[in-house]
Simulated assay, not measured.
Amino acid sequence: MGVKKYFKKEFQASNFNLEHDITPDFYLGCWQTNRSCVPLLCLRAILCAGNIAIVIASWVVLADLLTSHGFWWIYLTQWGILANALTSIFAFAISLKVYLGGPIDSAFGLPWYIKLYWFLFNASVPMAFMITVFYWTFLNAEFDIPGLDATMDIFSHGINSVTMFLLLITARHPTRLLHFYHAVAFGILYLVFSLIYYFAGGLDSSGNPWIYPMLDWSNPGPTVAVVVGVAIGLIILHGLVTLLSLCRNHFSQRFRKENRSFSVSG
Rank of each mutant, 00 (worst) to 15 (best):
S161L: 05
T87K: 10
K5L: 11
H157M: 06
L203N: 09
G233P: 08
W136M: 07
G221F: 00
L41C: 07
T175H: 14
A83I: 04
L76A: 01
E258D: 12
G207H: 00
S206N: 12
M164F: 06
I46E: 01
A85I: 12
G202N: 00
D21G: 13
G266L: 15
L244R: 02
K5A: 11
I235V: 10
H179D: 05
K9I: 11
V230Q: 06
S263H: 10
T77N: 09
I211M: 06
L28C: 03
A49Y: 04
R35M: 13
A150Q: 14
F119H: 08
F180I: 05
L246I: 14
G2I: 15
W31A: 06
L43S: 05
T151H: 14
F138R: 10
T242Q: 05
S252E: 00
N249C: 14
K9F: 01
I154E: 15
Y198S: 09
C247V: 14
H173K: 00
D21M: 02
L168P: 00
F134V: 05
F11Q: 08
L191E: 00
P103A: 05
V133A: 07
I159C: 12
D204R: 01
L47A: 02
V192T: 03
Y27S: 03
F134Q: 07
P126M: 03
V3D: 10
L177A: 03
Y212W: 09
V125C: 01
V125T: 02
F26W: 04
M1K: 14
I56P: 04
F129L: 13
F134D: 01
I196M: 03
F90I: 15
T170C: 09
L240R: 03
F193L: 03
S252D: 11
M152Y: 13
M214H: 07
S88Q: 08
F251Q: 08
S36N: 09
D105A: 09
I54P: 00
E142L: 15
L237W: 07
L110I: 04
K97N: 14
F16C: 11
M164S: 12
I169V: 10
L178Y: 09
T170W: 01
P24F: 02
A49H: 06
N249D: 14
W59D: 08
E258T: 12
V184G: 02
F155Q: 12
L148I: 11
R176C: 02
E142I: 09
I74F: 09
F121K: 05
K5G: 13
C30T: 10
P220Y: 06
F121Y: 13
D64E: 11
G50F: 04
L65M: 01
G147A: 02
H182G: 13
N160I: 10
A150P: 15
V264W: 12
D204N: 07
V224R: 01
I54E: 04
S206T: 10
A63Y: 12
G229E: 01
W79K: 04
G229V: 05
F165A: 12
Y99S: 13
N51G: 08
A128M: 12
Y198P: 08
L47D: 00
C37V: 15
G50M: 00
W210P: 02
F108C: 11
